[in-house]
């Protein structure tokens, strides 16, 4: 079976463009959104999509389009923040455990493997449950849960790089371990990590939306997509547009992340298998 390289590139281009458009809309939110996302107008409840309200209004008469546009800022910005913090935590751990393959190290990975057997959503919900519902606690929970898979991925990358001959020659020419890690291993991990991060942004946004949907994350009146869907649950029989548009927004963002990482997924899967 031959895969035309063209089709892969096409999905990458579509994904990147989609992501750029979404981020741009989010950045330009104050100029683009037709209304104030938080302005309550009770005489205008459940308006169906029209010229003044392209996506209609919700149960408090707020403009759904404006809320979705401001929602980009919340979902994307905080997903990015979560991802960066998780990288900061897991990069040194992954590097060190990948570089020194000691016995304790093996033990540590077994522990991580074991915790990874528990689905993200279960652990996140449990941690939020203990800390109490709220946006900050949700972020903490996601970081606490996601770091293990980051470590696993980074470690698998490092293990692979360490087999290369140039690492051996770097060692033979008298570099210290710290220097090898910094100068010879870290730069090589960069591009796979970007791809991994792109895919994970989608996952984090989905997780955040799911938790907010359950009422454990973003609280009203925050215009977060999952929280908007939660509002829609009570009214979607009379106002289906309340449910449709936030869902499309989540779908498009996650789809963009998927498309970008699609091209590299095979590589990632092969890497993960070797651990």
């Amino acid at each position: 079976m031959k895969k035309t390289p063209y089709s892969w590139d096409a999905s990458l281009i579509v994904g990147i463009n989609l992501l750029i458009i979404i981020v741009l809309i989010g950045l330009l939110a104050p100029w683009i959104s037709p209304h104030d996302p938080l302005k309550v107008n009770l005489s205008n409840r459940f308006v169906f999509p029209s010229w003044t309200y392209p996506f209609g209004t919700d149960h408090l008469g707020r403009c759904i389009l404006s809320r979705i546009i401001y929602g980009i800022r919340i979902s994307v910005a905080f997903a990015f923040l979560i991802m960066i913090v998780t990288f900061i935590i897991s990069l040194p751990i992954g590097l060190i455990t990948g570089y020194w393959r000691a016995r304790a190290n093996h033990f540590f990975m077994r522990l991580i493997d074991g915790t990874l057997a528990i689905p993200d959503i279960v652990l996140t919900i449990a941690i939020v449950g203990m800390l109490g519902p709220g946006f900050l606690n949700m972020m903490i929970a996601i970081i606490l849960v996601r770091w293990a898979s980051y470590v696993r991925f980074i470690r698998s990358l490092v293990l692979k790089i360490c087999e290369e001959d140039y690492i051996l020659s770097a060692r033979m020419s008298g570099n210290t371990h710290a220097r090898i890690m910094r100068r010879y291993i870290l730069p090589v991990t960069f591009s796979p990590l970007v791809i991994f991060g792109a895919l994970d942004m989608g996952k984090i946004v989905l997780l955040m939306a799911g938790l907010s949907f359950l009422g454990l994350g973003a609280q009203p009146p925050t215009p977060e997509w999952g929280a908007m869907l939660r509002d829609a649950t009570a009214y979607f029989q009379i106002a289906p547009h309340m449910m449709v548009f936030p869902g499309v927004a989540i779908l498009l963002f996650v789809l963009a992340c998927q498309l970008i990482s699609d091209r590299f997924k095979k590589l990632n899967a092969a890497d993960l298998k070797e651990v």
């Binding site: 989608g202 989905l206 939306a209 799911g210 949907f213 999952g226 869907l229 829609a232 649950t233 979607f236 449910m243 936030p246 869902g247 989540i250 779908l251 996650v254 789809l255 992340c257 998927q258 498309l259 699609d262």
Partner: peptide
């Protein structure tokens, strides 16, 4: 498959 891996389950349930 692309849509299936991106669609939020809570939204699909609603639809």
């Amino acid at each position: 498959a692309l849509l299936g891996s991106s669609i939020p389950s809570f939204w699909l349930g609603f639809l």
